[in-house]
Simulated scan of single mutants.
Amino acid sequence: MISDGMAELLRSLRLGGVVDPARACAKALQAEGVVLSLLVGRDADATAEPVWCHPELSTRFDELQFTLGEGPGPEAVRTGSPVMEPDLARVRPDRWPALLPAAHDMGVHGVCCYPLGIGAIRVGVLTVLCDGDRRLSEQQYKDATALTAALTGALLNGGPRGGDGIVREFDMSLDPPPGLRRAVVHQATGMISVQLGVSMEDALLRLRAHAYSSELPLGEIAADVVARRLRFDDDMSGPYSPDGGKG
């Protein structure tokens, strides 16, 4: 059975009475943070767009996963199963080699990710940052599972402006942002694919590698590529600024 706090949160969400859903979810789950990301696009081209984030640490961790292309969130979306790692210190280093040390430095102790979807259908992922004691109680698991089911039902049973009245109101807080900030990554990937004469998959790997080595968000590097402030012409010289870095 879900907790009274989660039951009240779900009622408030259905009635559209939650001003800050991410903060409310984190409080109901007694978690350090929450991120709700929706998948925009199809299959391999889908991009996870964050629509709820609290607090700022959650935003940074979500961006880290997106930049590296690895972590519990991408794994949950890929497998369609929850990925429960309440203590990242116990995770094998070779599972997420780039993410684990960065998450430690960031102060993220544990992460549990719940895919939103039914069967082969994937619509998003709920990321929960675990609290400092690095344990996930049975009650927290039940509450997170109930929240995931409610969000999945809201997304699959009616569009942002469709469905019955309850679903429509529930969906108001689930609309993807009008300016998808991660769409620029797809644009940049296509440009790099042409510049290097490689596949889209390889182009995205090059883009992520450059973002990681530069210690900059993937979106920021992608924006530079789209704005033609950065080019990937060959593997020998690596990316360079056509204007000499003067903007």
Results as ranks from 00 to 15, higher is better:
135 R>T: 07
136 L>R: 15
137 S>K: 01
141 Y>Q: 10
143 D>I: 00
144 A>E: 04
145 T>W: 06
145 T>Y: 04
146 A>R: 08
147 L>Y: 03
147 L>Q: 03
148 T>D: 07
151 L>G: 10
153 G>K: 07
154 A>K: 02
154 A>Q: 02
155 L>Y: 00
157 N>I: 06
158 G>M: 07
159 G>C: 13
160 P>D: 12
162 G>E: 10
163 G>S: 07
164 D>T: 02
168 R>K: 11
169 E>G: 07
169 E>K: 13
169 E>A: 15
171 D>T: 08
171 D>Q: 13
172 M>D: 06
175 D>I: 00
176 P>K: 00
177 P>G: 02
178 P>F: 00
178 P>R: 00
179 G>W: 12
179 G>R: 14
180 L>S: 12
181 R>L: 14
181 R>G: 10
182 R>S: 03
182 R>N: 05
182 R>D: 01
184 V>Q: 07
185 V>F: 03
186 H>S: 09
187 Q>Y: 12
188 A>L: 07
188 A>P: 10
190 G>A: 05
190 G>T: 03
191 M>F: 15
192 I>K: 03
193 S>E: 08
194 V>T: 08
196 L>Y: 10
197 G>A: 09
198 V>F: 05
200 M>P: 01
202 D>K: 11
202 D>W: 10
202 D>T: 11
204 L>Q: 11
204 L>C: 10
206 R>S: 14
207 L>F: 04
210 H>C: 10
210 H>G: 04
211 A>K: 12
212 Y>C: 08
213 S>L: 15
214 S>R: 09
215 E>Y: 04
215 E>F: 03
216 L>D: 09
216 L>F: 11
217 P>D: 01
218 L>S: 04
222 A>L: 02
224 D>N: 03
225 V>D: 14
225 V>W: 11
227 A>R: 13
227 A>H: 12
227 A>E: 14
228 R>K: 07
229 R>G: 09
230 L>F: 14
230 L>Q: 15
231 R>M: 15
233 D>N: 12
233 D>C: 13
236 M>L: 07
238 G>L: 11
239 P>E: 03
240 Y>A: 11
240 Y>V: 08
